[in-house]
Design a protein around this nucleic acid. Structure first.
Length: 279
DNA sequence: CCCCAGCCCTGGTCGC
DNA sequence: TGCGACCAGGGCTGGG
């Protein structure tokens, strides 16, 4: 499932290929993709636009056009952006959109489960869009401080993992990197977010950054559906400390990794070195 | 405001 | 070999 490192990996490979290119033609094959906007309106808005940059905000891929418009792509669970287009994509039933560029190459948007979304914003609407969704700071920016993280967790009774999954404390963390970050930080996922002391908050900040940076270096985690824009697999799954490893020995202390269910999500942790309470 | 359940979606896996 | 149940989960909505 594409989280910050997966989206960043896609962004990094799309940016040099798309920057400076003009969009000649847009085919939206699944009308759900642009909901609630009509797909033909979105396609018409994009045709003729020239790409100025490809950025990322949290888990959003942000295509910036010279006109000031933006295309926001959210891959949700199973979305992929592929460029250059893979062989045979015309027969692939999961291709939801195809964008033809002025160098005659195609960008293919593929999404098995159809949760992904495309939004076109007019110039000047981007900041409000993220504010309205209460998207938190970028966890790899300097502005992501322990003090700021502490403030956004203060008073919250929800489990710390749930607080990481909603995007207010920091943008871009999903189920995988939340579990990994909490392992690095020695923090139990069920601890109420507001109960962390300042030392734990500092450690959590470090764990988040460590997990996300490693994910980017490994070009994301390919479990089932995720692929880079070039179709390549990520290797982060080889670095998992807890995610999906129920019963396997903890890399730190050897105790078997436990699995729980939290906020409807599978949650893996080491019951020994991520204690629920201070010793 | 906070918190949580339910919803959207499809494909893979498992038990029978 | 078929079939139903269940699981994967990001972000949003609605209810308490």
């Amino acid at each position: 499932m594409p989280e910050l490192p997966e989206v960043e990996t896609i962004r990094a490979s799309l940016a040099p290929a798309l920057t400076g290119r003009r969009i000649d033609r847009v085919e939206i094959l699944d009308p759900r993709l642009t909901r609630p906007e009509l797909p033909e309106l979105v396609a018409a808005a994009l045709e003729g636009e020239r790409v100025a940059d490809v950025r990322r905000r949290g888990k959003y891929l942000v295509v910036v056009f010279e006109s000031g418009r933006h295309l926001l792509v959210h891959l949700r669970m199973t979305g992929n952006v592929l460029h250059p287009a893979p062989e045979g994509h015309r027969d692939d039933p999961h291709v939801r959109a195809v964008v033809r560029l002025d160098d005659a190459s195609d960008v293919v948007y593929r999404d098995v489960r159809r949760f992904g979304t495309w939004d076109v914003l007019e110039a000047g609407e981007l900041d409000d869009y993220f504010v309205a969704r209460r998207l938190g700071v970028e966890p790899l920016d300097r502005s992501f401080t322990a003090a700021g993280l502490g403030r956004s967790l203060a008073g919250r009774r929800a489990p710390v993992k749930a607080a990481l999954l909603d995007q207010r404390a920091a943008a871009g963390i999903g189920n995988i990197y939340a579990d990994e970050a909490l392992w690095y930080a020695h923090i139990h996922p069920l601890v109420p977010a507001g109960q962390l002391d300042s030392e734990q908050v500092t450690s959590l900040r470090r764990g988040i950054r460590r997990a996300l940076r490693l994910g980017i270096r490994r070009q994301g985690a390919t479990l089932r559906d995720y692929r880079g824009a070039d179709g390549g697999r990520g290797r982060m799954q080889d670095e998992f400390r807890v995610y999906g490893r129920e019963g396997e020995p903890c890399d730190r202390c050897g105790a078997p990794i436990a699995k729980a269910r939290l906020a409807g999500r599978g949650t893996w942790y080491c019951p020994v070195c991520q204690p629920a309470h201070e010793p």
